Amino acid sequence: MRIARFVHPGSPSAPSGVAWGAVEGPPNAPAERLTVAAITEHPFGPIAFTGDRWALADVRLLAPILPSKVVAIGKNYVDHVKEMGGDAAPTIPVIFLKPSTSVIGTSDVIRLPATSERVDFEAELAIVIGRPGKDITRENAMSYVLGYTCANDVTARDQQQSDGQWARAKGYDSFCPIGPWIETVLDPTDLQITARVNGELRQDSRTSLMVHDIPALIAFMSSVMTLLPGDVILTGTPAGVGPIRDGDRVDVEIEGIGTLSNPVQAKK
C-alpha cells in the first residue's frame, strides 16, 4: 500500500483539509491515472477508509510523515566514503540527527541558505518506523517498519567540512525532502536508487551495496534511542553527490517506490 499525506479540495462528506490516504493505481502508471482514497485517522494501526476519493491530480501531496526525529546514517556506501576522501567504511554505523523542521514533501522548494557556498544533494532510501521500540534485536527489526520512502539528505558541504560536526550543515529548513508517499509492501534489500539534476543522471546504485543493512541500522539506533511511530531513518547515500544551484530540480527515484522531485531556489 502506498500511504500519502495530502491536502484535498473537500467533498460532500468532508471539508477541504489535510488527510491520510492510500494511492490507488498501477505502480508505474502516470499520475493522471492514479487516485487517492482517504483513510480514517492515521496509518499506524488497522486501515479503514472514509469513502472519500480524489484524483491524485486534484490533491497536493505533503511530506508523507511528520517525524519526531530524523536519524541519518553517514558513510554507509563504500563508493561514497571513497569519493569523500575516506579509506574505509566505519565498522559501526555513523549516526546524526536532522531536525523535524528540515522535512518537506515532493514538489516543495529546497531553499539554499545565503551562508553556504556549496549545497549538495544526496539520494537515500528512508525507513519509516511503525511502532515504538527500544533495544530491538536484528532478528525482530523488520517488524518495526511501517514502510519506505525516498529521501534527499541535503547538505551544506562547506559547513560540514568547516564545523567539525554536521548539525548546521544538515539541519536547515527544507534540507530533508521525503516522499512522494510511504510504500508499505516492499523488499528493500536490492533496489535501484538514482538521483537526477535537471534530468541528468548523477547517482545510480543499489541498496544491496549498503555497508550496514536495514536490520543492523534499526538494531543499532534503537540501542541508543527509543524509536517512535513515524520516525524516519535515512540509510546513507551512494557515490555521485554534487552541488545544486538556484533554478535546479532534483529527482530522487527508488525502484518500487516512486520519484521525489524538488525545485531549488536561493533563499531571498
Rank of each mutant, 00 (worst) to 15 (best):
M1W: 07
R2L: 05
P9M: 10
A22P: 01
T35C: 03
T35W: 08
V36H: 11
A37T: 15
D58C: 00
V59C: 12
R60F: 08
P64T: 08
L66R: 14
K69M: 05
K69G: 04
I73D: 06
K75H: 03
N76D: 07
N76Y: 01
K82W: 09
E83N: 05
E83K: 12
A88K: 13
A89Q: 05
L97H: 01
V103W: 03
I110Y: 09
E124A: 09
L125W: 13
G133E: 00
K134L: 13
N140E: 08
M142S: 11
T149S: 02
C150W: 04
A151V: 00
V154A: 05
A156L: 02
A156R: 05
Q160F: 09
A169Y: 08
K170F: 00
Y172W: 15
Y172T: 03
P188R: 04
P188V: 04
T189C: 09
R196D: 13
L201I: 13
S208I: 01
L209R: 13
L217W: 04
I218K: 03
P229K: 09
L234W: 04
A239V: 10
A239L: 08
G240V: 14
P243Q: 06
R245I: 09
D248E: 06
D251Q: 15
D251H: 06
E255A: 05
G256C: 05
I257T: 12
